[in-house]
Nucleic acid binder design. Structure first.
Length: 354
DNA sequence: GGTTTTGAAACGGACAGGCC
DNA sequence: GGCCTGTCCGTTTCAAAACC
């Protein structure tokens, strides 16, 4: 589906992403936040907290607790709102700003005394109040790994492979749309619908990057937050380490038993699942092969879902404007004919006299 | 028209409890 | 004990609405 060159760029990104992991710069796939944490830890000589340490990302040699947040900015504005802060649990908040190529723009250091509640805002009016750092020293190998990663990421954007920073989701949507001739939603945050088919069916696409990696402690993978999704079908896409599609399934949304927190393994057990691309993952089974939408649509119709079709709009009848008030029964009496005849005769007589 | 706010989206992890 | 599920939390990004 991708060209050879595009696959090479994706493989290169996977390599550069792994390089960050191997160097300890990142520990998960949330690379923006992790790169920011790494840079702040380098600068302030922090001891980085574990994966799930509430509100504290690093601890300084003097015991100060740091909360670190990162943001990629594409405009000149540094305005930012951070919510759900717990100022009683840390001493300093560090905001790390990157440009779109992951070059450090600045780091802001905000003492907790400036954060009275759980929401904190950086605006034009207050940004100058805080200590700003725009250069961080770090060993050359780290610098090079970050530069290489940023270049590789930028190449994905420049070659039209991804349209946002959600790489996994973008690629999964691309595969699903290519395979099923779907039209991707222009609005990237449209609730519950990622793509549409010209036949009117709607689709939510969920993608998981499934491969052996120390990034994940557990094998359990979830398909969270499908509650309220209005799409007709869920398409599950799995990607291997180099972002090649390692499986694709289509599931009627209404058949998903636990939409709030389904396991990825629901594709093994949910009724009506069909395989679009065979599974290369041992614990995700191949199901009945998907034969195209004709089959799906005919099943929809036999399931009486056809009754849910929107009623065809009724064209209003054109009613002529009444020029003369008429009686409800629309019948003309003999008296009316006589009166009309007399009036016409009188009119003709007047015309002759004149 | 630029800035700020808000809500929805994405992916992932931890923990508790039930079941076998 | 191991597995699975439910729930809640963590992270950042995007875009529309609201505001100035």
């Amino acid at each position: 589906m991708y060209t050879k060159n595009q696959f090479q760029l994706l493989k290169d990104f996977a390599d550069k992403n792994d390089a960050l992991f191997d160097l300890g710069i990142t520990t998960t796939d949330s690379f923006t936040g992790e790169i920011g944490e790494f840079i702040a830890c380098q600068h302030f000589k922090l001891h980085k907290s574990g994966r799930s340490n509430k509100a504290v990302d690093g601890i300084a040699p003097n015991g100060e607790r740091y909360q670190i947040k990162s943001k990629v900015v594409s405009t000149s504005s540094f305005s930012h709102t951070i919510s759900n802060l717990q100022p009683d649990l840390f001493d300093k908040l560090v905001l790390v700003y990157f440009d779109i190529h992951y070059n450090l723009l600045k780091m802001l250091v905000i003492p907790v005394s400036e954060i009275p509640e759980s929401v904190f805002r950086i605006t034009k009016s207050n940004i100058s109040k805080f200590e700003s750092i725009d250069r961080v020293k770090m060993p050359l190998k780290f610098q090079k790994a970050l530069t290489d990663f940023a270049k590789s990421f930028t190449a994905l954007q420049e070659n039209g492979i991804i349209r946002s920073r959600r790489i996994v989701g973008d690629i999964g949507e691309f595969y699903a749309c290519k395979k099923l001739d779907l039209i991707i939603s222009e609005n990237q945050t449209e609730k519950g619908i990622d793509a549409r088919h010209p036949n009117g069916l709607t689709f939510e696409v969920k993608t998981r990057w499934v491969y052996e990696s120390d990034r994940r402690i557990s094998e359990v993978r979830r398909l969270n937050n499908l509650v309220g999704k209005t799409a007709d079908y869920l398409i599950v896409v799995t990607l291997d380490r180099c972002f090649e599609c390692s499986g694709m399934w289509i599931i009627p949304m209404k058949n998903i038993a636990n939409p709030k927190s389904a396991s990825l393994k629901i594709i093994n057990s949910t009724p009506g699942v069909k395989n679009i691309i065979p599974s290369k993952i041992s614990w995700l089974q191949n199901r009945e092969s998907f034969q195209g939408f004709d089959t799906v649509i005919s099943k929809r119709q036999t399931n009486k879902t056809i009754a849910k079709r929107r009623p065809r709009p009724v064209k209003p009848k054109q009613v002529p404007l009444p020029l003369i008030p008429v009686e409800e029964n629309n019948e003309i009496s003999i008296e009316q004919i006589i009166i009309a005849a007399v009036l016409i005769a009188l009119g003709l007589l007047v015309a002759v006299i004149i």
